[in-house]
């Protein structure tokens, strides 16, 4: 699942996902009918609309194959959110079936494929923003494990790491002032140690943080974790 954000703005993240998975000898299919996971309507409380989109996902991603998503937030929509909104629905079982095989990509690499060290190199200092949808899941520890094992990668921890970046989808639209204040605080903490780039497992966070930084006149390079993994392979000459 490429996610709508990657489709609209961040095609290279989707490309990197394919390249990394193929490097790991996975056969990657991209079901052409895919759109979005249904999260915007789910979060806004319009569950009827959201279910419509999730049902579309059920059709597009039918089968037994794992569904791998380069976004903790979209993955969590399928393996957690959808279960809530389908509680009283007849097709709950189908949703459960899809939920059971939906993975955030770093979690899939480490806990699905059993990879726990990443080859190649990435000679740069990075601030890793733990995106909120990885809370209580295995994605956060999985990502850290991979990042820490990359040669040359200098991870720069920062303060108030548990705090949200303030994006929250429509939250950033209906709570513009609180959202921007949260984002600025996150940038302040994350950039304190002067990292070369800011990385995360969710492009939502990076869209928001990158956008704030650029508007504030101090743009900061942002990368998705999967791009870092792909770039490490490239730098190490392991893929072209």
């Amino acid at each position: 699942m490429a996610t709508c954000l990657c489709e609209a703005f961040f095609d290279d993240v989707a490309i990197a996902t394919v390249q990394v998975l193929e490097y790991l000898k996975c056969e990657v299919a991209f079901p052409d009918g895919q759109t979005c996971c249904g999260q915007p309507a789910f979060n806004a409380g319009d569950w009827a609309s959201s279910r419509r989109v999730v049902r579309h996902c059920l059709k597009v991603f039918a089968g037994e194959e794992p569904v791998v998503v380069p976004s903790g937030s979209c993955a969590a929509m399928i393996f957690h959110g959808a279960l809530l909104e389908f509680e009283e629905e007849k097709d709950l079982e189908e949703v459960r079936q899809l939920a059971g095989r939906t993975w955030e990509v770093a979690d899939f690499i480490v806990n699905g494929l059993g990879v726990d060290e990443w080859p190649g190199k990435f000679p740069a200092s990075v601030a890793f923003h733990r995106s909120c949808h990885s809370r209580g899941t295995d994605s956060g520890p999985a990502t850290l494990r991979l990042l820490e094992s990359i040669e040359g990668l200098d991870l720069r921890p920062f303060g108030e790491a548990e705090q949200c970046c303030g994006f929250g989808g429509t939250f950033s639209v209906t709570f513009p002032s609180i959202s921007a204040a949260m984002g600025k605080l996150k940038l302040e903490h994350a950039l304190k140690e002067n990292p070369d780039c800011l990385i995360s497992g969710d492009m939502g966070c990076l869209l928001h943080l990158g956008g704030l930084a650029e508007k504030g006149g101090t743009p900061v390079p942002t990368r998705h974790v999967i791009q870092v993994l792909r770039d490490a392979l490239r730098n190490g000459g392991l893929i072209s």
Binding site: D32, T35, G38, P40, A41, A44, D46, T170
Partner: peptide, 17 residues
């Protein structure tokens, strides 16, 4: 709910590939 974008229309769009 003030400010909430129209998500019903969006969901129709997201179910027509």
């Amino acid at each position: 709910s003030p400010g909430t974008p129209p998500l019903a229309a969006w969901s129709r769009l997201a179910s027509q590939p």
